[in-house]
């Protein structure tokens, strides 16, 4: 069993993506022996009204028979966002809520960010934070979003102690710092940019945050799927006791997947 916690559907404005519809993504999962994928809408990142992207995602994933687990994307600067959030989580049963402050024009630590974190935490679902979608060195002239930083994340997470975080595409987080900030058990990081062998940052996070802190994630369809499968294969040799937890069990627990 493998659950991919880091996938997206839809067009990205700055690069042509393959596998961007629900059937294409399911076919990609099939080709790589991945059972389920946690998916968010790229359109929700770029539409003025993010919730229109959530509506599309809800419709697109309903036919997947549970293979695709939708995540809402909320813009706390937009009118009616709390109503949209409630609809996504309470009515549609979305399992997490993504915030993209760099794309939606606010900061995780300003009034918009703090109120969104607090409201999502009240609903009892994790907040999804991507450090970035793409490497900034190749950015399009209209792509102005900066990477989220560890310092910003730590400040925000400490300000809302009931919030839990699914951290995607992160690199450079110090597990000891996260633990010291009270985040052990409150964070789940994906493998997309971590290394199991050579740099071994995935192993250090397991040591400092425990076996419940990592999950399989690919950043498909932006990235190839097999890099994270290679990491998972190496983990199965180096830390066999953690294999199932990283492959699917942590994701299932953290996101309360049925």
């Amino acid at each position: 069993m493998i659950i991919d916690v880091n996938t997206s559907l839809g067009h990205y404005p700055f690069r042509a993506l393959r596998h961007r519809t629900a059937p294409e993504l399911v076919a990609l999962l099939d080709r790589h022996a991945i059972d389920r994928a946690v998916v968010s809408s790229l359109h929700a990142v770029f539409y003025r009204d993010a919730h229109r992207g959530n509506e599309e995602l809800h419709a697109a994933t309903r036919a997947s028979g549970g293979r695709l687990v939708p995540v809402a994307t909320i813009n706390p600067r937009y009118v009616g966002w709390e109503r949209d959030l409630a609809e996504a989580v309470e009515t549609w049963g979305m399992k997490a809520v993504q915030l993209v402050p760099g794309h939606h024009g606010y900061a995780l630590n300003d009034a918009y960010g703090r109120s969104a974190l607090a409201r999502v935490a009240e609903l009892g679902v994790p907040v999804v934070l991507r450090q970035r979608f793409e490497d900034r060195r190749q950015r399009h002239a209209w792509d102005q979003a900066e990477d989220l930083t560890a310092a910003t994340f730590l400040e925000a997470a400490q300000a809302v102690p009931s919030a839990r975080f699914l951290l995607l595409n992160w690199l450079g987080l110090d597990g000891a710092r996260l633990a010291a900030a009270g985040l052990k058990g409150r964070v789940l990081l994906d493998l997309a940019r971590l290394q199991v062998v050579y740099r071994k940052d995935a192993l250090r996070l397991l040591e400092t945050l425990g076996g419940e802190a990592l999950a399989f994630g690919t950043h498909a369809p932006f990235d190839y799927v097999a890099p994270s499968l290679v990491k998972l294969a190496n983990l199965s040799r180096l830390r066999p006791a953690d294999y199932e937890a990283v492959a699917w069990r942590n994701a299932a627990r953290f996101l309360a997947l049925a």
């Binding site: 069993m1 022996a33 499968l229 066999p240």
Partner: peptide, 24 residues
């Protein structure tokens, strides 16, 4: 979904042994 059922059956196999890495 039938496809998912197929994948779930595969998932009842034990954790992969060396040389049998899922998806690779």
């Amino acid at each position: 979904a039938a496809r998912l059922a197929g994948r779930a059956r595969a998932a009842t196999a034990p954790a992969p042994s060396p040389g049998d890495d899922p998806g690779l």
